[in-house]
Nucleic acid binder design. Structure first.
Length: 352
DNA sequence: ATATGGATCCGCCAAT
DNA sequence: CAATTGGCGGATCCAT
């Protein structure tokens, strides 16, 4: 395959502690008629960049094997002379798939009856490790019947129509993307890119995801309209409202005392039981969650302000600039000064 | 760069 | 008896 220019990706040789997946992951895009081209190729491109980052880290053996199948053969998109076409029917897909990507499908085609194709999606959805829809691709998942009772999102402009058609789905159009079990749905074209970055983060950690995001000049943070949580943290939100509230409190008060004892008394539990409950609900021990919130806030401050680093450290609950530096090196592989230099806001005008 | 003291995590068992 | 909660202590992580 042709290589993208290397300058898109910052040097990545210093990514520490890469996880060791047992094998490469097979990612299959199920293309259909009439998607925006970005919805088709955006997420695939992100996976491809992740491969480059891993490659530059000397791990060509890890990463993603990308593949496209389609519900329609031949040309599926045309714009001003740019044509996208496919040559492999979905029926020919065999073997184990890690991640299935579902872009939008032309509504006329979708609603005129696609039983066979939708049945195939439904069957595959139970076999794969995860399945993810982009923008109105959520309609395809819903039509296939796999979203009943699940939380999901799609483009905000489609909310009313979607709720009428699929009242059994718990639709929330505020978040950028939603994860329910192994089913992921995303809000808009570029939200599909954010979601994909989050998938990569799950697989290979934040450092890799960060390199990919920076290569794309898309940021990991991207606050949703309602949630002050970053995409990183949002999928760790507990379903127990008491714990979720506490998570919000932590995120909003990273500069305060957030010791186990303090947090436990705030929710009226013993520290042992609090620790156990929190870990069970959130998937992270309280201390680790606090640490991640602090790091997140410090990153935002470094990117978006010119506050001195010691000031950022103080504001974000680190005992000293030094301890913040060590936290950065531990978790991101670079120190705060280098982080700011690399990611400060000159390039922060977000797309869509 | 290393040493030390404190915080946290987590398995285990007792109490509820 | 089963399930939840609380406390203890060792291993580990982290700040200084």
């Amino acid at each position: 395959m042709t290589e993208l220019p290397k300058f898109l990706i910052p040097p990545a040789s210093y990514i520490p502690n890469l996880p060791e997946p047992e094998r490469r992951k097979r990612v299959v895009l199920v293309a259909s008629l009439c998607a925006e081209p970005l919805e088709l190729i955006g997420p695939m491109n992100v996976f491809r960049l992740a491969n480059m980052v891993l490659d530059l880290s000397g791990r060509r053996d890890m990463g993603y094997d990308l593949e496209v199948v389609s519900s329609h053969l031949g040309e599926i998109f045309e714009m001003d002379g740019l044509k996208i076409s496919t040559d492999k029917p979905y029926q020919e897909l065999s073997g184990e798939v890690d991640t299935l990507l579902i872009p939008p499908m032309d509504f006329d085609v979708l609603f005129e009856g696609q039983e066979q194709f939708l049945g195939w999606i439904a069957a595959k959805s139970t076999e794969v490790r995860r399945i993810a829809s982009i923008c109105a691709g959520t309609y395809v998942l819903a039509a296939a019947g796999i979203l009943v009772g699940k939380r999901a999102t799609t483009h905000w402009d489609l909310e009313k129509d979607f709720v009428e058609r699929y009242p059994d789905v718990q639709l929330d159009v505020d978040p950028i993307y939603v994860k329910d079990g192994h089913i992921y749905t995303s809000a808009g074209m570029t939200a599909g890119i954010d979601m994909t970055i989050a998938l990569i983060e799950e697989d290979f950690g934040r450092a890799v995801a960060l390199r990919v995001a920076q290569g794309l000049v898309v940021f990991l943070k991207r606050p949703g309209s309602q949630s002050q949580f970053s995409t990183q943290l949002s999928y760790d939100l507990s379903e127990k409202s008491e714990i979720a509230e506490l998570q919000s409190y932590i995120y909003d008060n990273v500069g305060d005392d957030l010791s186990i004892d303090e947090l436990a008394s705030r929710v009226g539990m013993s520290s042992r039981n609090f620790s156990r409950t929190f870990t069970k609900e959130v998937g992270l021990a309280p201390g680790r969650f606090v640490e991640r919130c602090r790091l997140e806030m410090a990153r935002l401050n470094l990117e978006g302000s010119s506050l001195p680093i010691t000031k950022v450290a103080e504001r974000c609950g680190y005992g000293s600039g030094d301890s913040m530096r060590m936290a950065f090196e531990r978790q991101l592989g670079l120190n705060p000064r280098a982080y700011r230099q690399r990611f400060a806001t000159s390039s922060s005008n977000h797309s869509v």
